[in-house]
Nucleic acid binder design. Structure first.
Lengths: 189, 189
DNA sequence: ATGTATATTGAGCAATTGCTCAATACGTCA
DNA sequence: TGACGTATTGAGCAATTGCTCAATATACAT
């Protein structure tokens, strides 16, 4: 039996509820109930806006970690990037991402978390692209600019998918993103 | 002196406040105060979630109208699209757009408004692209797919800009979007 | 044992906010 | 004029929600 401190249980409960319910609907009472602690304890250790942002940041730090696996070649990593970006399992994360973009405009803690998550993601993606260039998997003028465009396109497609866009499906979204990369590299691979 | 009905003044006040303050912060009291009417009147004519969505929809119906000017050639229209998309004056609209994407996940009225606005925008953009093909301004396999990609990329770039992304500026965002179009058409123009 | 600090609880506070409702004014039609 | 519907007002309701705080338990040091 794993004994977790109540402080940690609060954080874990926040993470779980964010994934289940999204960023805008989760409340402190739901968190303390899920964690099995009194409502006062949450405020003893945290302030809600900070806790929420911390949990959000932890979620996407985990996502960034998943981006690159040990021993994976750049083409393999990119193939996974394209596939996993729009997999149904990723839907809760899309929601958290899109909601955070909006909330960040009035919540400094979330704004900081989003900036940090973007930076991590772009670093990993740029690393993969750069390594692919040096291994001659593909040619790219400016890997970081390509990473940014891929990221922007993915964000945009995710927004469309969440809105149940009539012209789009998970499969088509993936095709659009692959299409962009194909045009950037100017080759099949 | 223009005499506007109080009902219309409420709608206009909502529009103005949305543009000034964003979607998530405006409240009914601010609207009635701005409109110079009692708080009860708003609820006599509207329900707040509907009013807010109606005002949001009106704003972006106006934006879609601006997309195409009479007598404008497709290349001229696209140049304006690239320039105006990231102009500083457009910032309030970015905010409304990004906030609406997040709110739509729990607000059916906003969700409907976003879907409708996207549809209008894509229709206009597709029309411009298609006309450019028939005039041989550029070549495109699937104009509507290109329109969707341009739209997705723009949404993504807007999200990055609102987050004060370190790698991005208004000018660079515009360049990224032009870059995408250049790769899609495979030519300068 | 005594004292001190930290952990923990949950009832209740205080602020927020969309909305109700009784009262009143106004306009129109018979 | 009287009657009836619509317009209009704002005090106040009711629900929500993060957070406070006094009370109690627990752990640890002297």
């Amino acid at each position: 039996m794993t004994t977790t401190s109540k402080r940690d249980r609060i954080l874990e409960a926040t993470v779980a509820l964010l994934i289940e319910q999204g960023l805008l609907t989760v409340q402190t009472r739901a968190v303390t109930e899920r964690a099995g602690v009194g409502t006062g304890l949450l405020n003893h250790y945290f302030r809600w806006p900070d806790l929420r942002a911390t949990a959000w940041a932890a979620i996407f730090a985990g996502v960034a970690d998943t981006m690159r696996r040990d021993g994976e070649t750049p083409p393999e990593a990119m193939r996974r990037f394209f596939t996993e970006s729009f997999a149904p399992e990723a839907r809760p994360f899309w929601r958290l991402w899109i909601e955070a973009e909006g909330l960040a405009l009035q919540d400094p803690a979330i704004a900081e978390a989003v900036t940090s998550a973007r930076s991590q993601l772009r670093d990993v993606l740029t690393e993969i692209l750069t390594e692919g260039v040096s291994r001659a998997d593909w040619a790219l003028d400016a890997p970081r600019a390509t990473a940014l465009r891929l990221e922007a396109m993915r964000d945009g497609l995710v927004g469309l998918l969440l809105g149940a866009d009539a012209d789009l499906s998970e499969g088509k979204a993936e095709a659009h993103l692959r299409d962009l990369f194909r045009r950037e590299t100017g080759q099949e691979w």
